[in-house]
């Protein structure tokens, strides 16, 4: 069973439906015991970094999520669910993230371009060297759907598994060990997004 963490932010409907369409067993949950029974976890996130962290703290689910990560269960962060895996964000100074990855989240610098970076952009996928390769078997130029104004700047560049160009080189996906995350929305990225989610389910 894949647990989609429901901590009161964002629209979980599409993530749930996409995983169901791919044949996964899914529970949208805010119940710690369900999370601890899951084989995999999806950590979504929409809105401001600070609001997400505040809601997640208030939910009391952080210990369960961190235990599962430490025990090696696969986790997929999506959008702000990627960002909160880092230590902090320019968007919400003074608010600590989960700190699974070293580094911070910064405002996109794209002079002359519109912010948020909203729409379809192509991924430059790095050579796979992670246990789960989200990008296996994709089209040679995979396009995915983004909506964000901030992006992660990891201390260790080796965790970056995909980038996208928008005024500067943006972190589009990161991974280390059992923890995967995408800045874009695979559940809104058509066939390519479904293939990415399938790789997560099967990985």
């Amino acid at each position: 069973m894949i647990a989609i963490i429901d901590y009161g932010v964002g629209n979980l409907f599409s993530v749930e439906k996409a995983l169901l369409q791919l044949g996964a067993q899914v529970e949208v949950t805010n119940d710690e015991s369900v999370i601890r029974q899951a084989q995999k976890i999806v950590l979504p996130g929409v809105g401001a970094f600070g609001d997400c962290m505040e809601n997640l703290r208030a939910s009391g689910l952080i210990p369960a999520i961190m235990d599962m990560v430490q025990q090696g269960y696969p986790l997929l962060g999506i959008c702000v669910g990627l960002q909160i895996l880092f230590e902090g964000s320019e968007e919400s100074p003074g608010v600590s993230g989960l700190g699974v990855f070293s580094g911070t989240v910064r405002k996109i610098k794209a002079p002359g371009l519109k912010i948020p970076h909203m729409g379809w952009n192509s991924l430059d996928v790095a050579e796979p060297h992670q246990p789960i390769d989200l990008f296996a078997g994709l089209a040679s130029i995979p396009y995915v759907y983004f909506v964000h104004s901030y992006h992660a700047v990891p201390a260790d560049k080796d965790i970056i598994t995909a980038t996208a160009e928008y005024g500067e080189t943006l972190t589009a996906a990161v991974a280390r060990g059992n923890v995967q995350a995408t800045q874009f929305h695979p559940e809104k990225s058509g066939d390519v997004g479904l293939d990415i989610l399938k790789n997560f389910i099967q990985g």
Binding site: N11, F13, S14, Q21, Y145
Partner: peptide, 29 residues
Amino acid sequence: ASQVFIPFTVGGGIRTVEDMRIMLKAGAD
């Protein structure tokens, strides 16, 4: 939203924040 996995907008007859909430919760982006 259950069958088509690309973003979509719903308009027409949206008059209140509650109307927005219902549409977004139903799966509109």
